[in-house]
Design a protein around this nucleic acid. Structure first.
Lengths: 252, 252
DNA sequence: GACCTGAAAACTGTTGACAGTTTTTGCGCC
DNA sequence: GGCGCAAAAACTGTCAACAGTTTTCAGGTC
């Protein structure tokens, strides 16, 4: 009848086509993940089960199942009888995650140095060059940067490391300050990327591990410095829409 | 009427008393976790939703929600239209987990050395002494050992590290060979525990980190050696009940 | 006996409804 | 206008039933 019904019908068709490989709950989980990571849902927002069910054209069952999955991967928090909320990440949480992530990245380096293949080296090299070309165009740089890090972990061949790392990276997306990459740091960062690549090419496990660990810790330090200078002096970047609650998923 | 109903009634009372703090789904999740870690449910077993629902005195909804949570923490695997199965961990998986765990343990050491308090040192010291007294009584030694490791991570104060580490440790419980601690290794292991304790007492972050990382890697090496000698020579410890499937949860 | 085949049984995926709790709303009172 | 307070609305927790898929099994065939 109206646009809403049009949308859900379309999505249902898609869902049905995919079925037999994916369950509704897992499709919903992916969609919610996307909404959270993309910022469509913000930290603190409540996930209204009925509203989501209407919006996605399914019943509440799959929605609830999806939420339990998200709870376990720490993207949401469930409060009994009150609902599930997109998690709020404190600065301390973010710093803690950086520490864990840096250790994981270190393992990736150690493992990878011993087994990296020429095609993998070529892929990584391509990404570093692309980042160099991106210069200080942050919109071009950022996805390349994410991809480079992801590839380093994936190429390690340690499946459990990959999932753990991904989960932490995703959780970090909940942190409110997206602008953690300042322009000046991109050149510095890519210099580190290149050094990592060299260590890997030489199969120097110890060096690759150290460099990779420190690369993440450098990110942590940047974040720390940023928040400190922010707290000390200038007004925070976007102080306007601070406590804009009530932006639940309800209305279409 | 019969014993089964008696059980479920009792459990329901317990559940109702706890309510308002916990949801049925989370209670079920904990129960399933216990069953899996304790070995009551074995790797490969299918979790029959209806049977579990009857057994625990709840409907299938909470069971399904619990399973989605377990799926995310990698204790079970869900196959569409076929059910959820207790995960099977291969030797390679176990080795991969050891690598990740060792890195996490290293972070714990580094963080903890800088912030450990006298009472915490006392607690850890107590555990090391208790383990020494346990000598080669494995039933006394094992839980102390688990506790010692857990405390080292908890005392680090990094919440995310704690949950990640716990999840990995739990997953490792799925690995079929429980006898990964041979008698001779207990003395060696406790010597390492004591060395870690000393490094922490001296607030030597680098040393504590290295020792703790290597402590876990030593466990990995023991496992590796064990499986190699097993493969090479003697028959495996318990070759009888190998493919004993069909031990689903159904019958009471 | 081994092997298809098709009906029956068992089980998972999903839904809609009901019960109990939390939040909102409307109203009198200060 | 601000403040309790009770009724109503909104929402979560749980369940039982239905639909569709997978597995089992009996019967026929070679």
């Amino acid at each position: 009848m109206n646009e809403v019904y049009g949308n859900t019908a379309l999505e249902m068709v898609t869902a049905l086509r995919i079925r037999r490989t994916e369950t509704l709950a897992s499709l919903v989980r992916k969609e919610l993940e996307r909404m959270i990571v993309s910022g469509e849902l913000r930290a603190g927002d409540r996930l209204n089960e009925s509203a989501l069910a209407d919006r996605l054209g399914v019943s509440r069952g799959p929605i609830r199942e999806a939420c339990r999955g998200l709870e376990q991967s720490r993207l949401v928090e469930v409060v009994v009888n009150r609902g599930t909320f997109v998690r709020q990440i404190s600065l301390q949480d973010a710093l803690d995650i950086y520490d864990v992530r840096s250790a994981l990245f270190g393992v990736a380096g150690e493992t990878l140095a011993a087994r990296i293949t020429p095609p993998q080296l070529a892929t990584l090299s391509g990404l570093v060059e692309a980042m160099a070309r991106a210069a200080d165009d942050i919109d071009a740089y950022y996805p390349l940067n994410v991809d480079y890090h992801a590839k380093l972990v994936e190429f390690s061949g340690n499946a459990r490391l990959v999932t753990t790392y991904r989960s932490l990276a995703q959780e970090l997306h909940l942190f409110r300050r997206q602008g953690l990459v300042s322009e000046g740091s991109m050149a510095v960062s890519n210099r580190e990327h290149r050094a990592i690549l060299e260590a890997l090419a030489q199969r120097d496990a110890a060096r690759a591990s150290t460099l990779m660990r420190e690369h993440i810790l450098a990110g942590k330090k940047r974040l720390l410095k940023l928040t400190e200078s922010e707290r000390a002096g200038a007004a925070s970047p976007a102080p306007d829409s601070q406590r804009r609650r009530k932006r639940l998923v309800a209305g279409t």
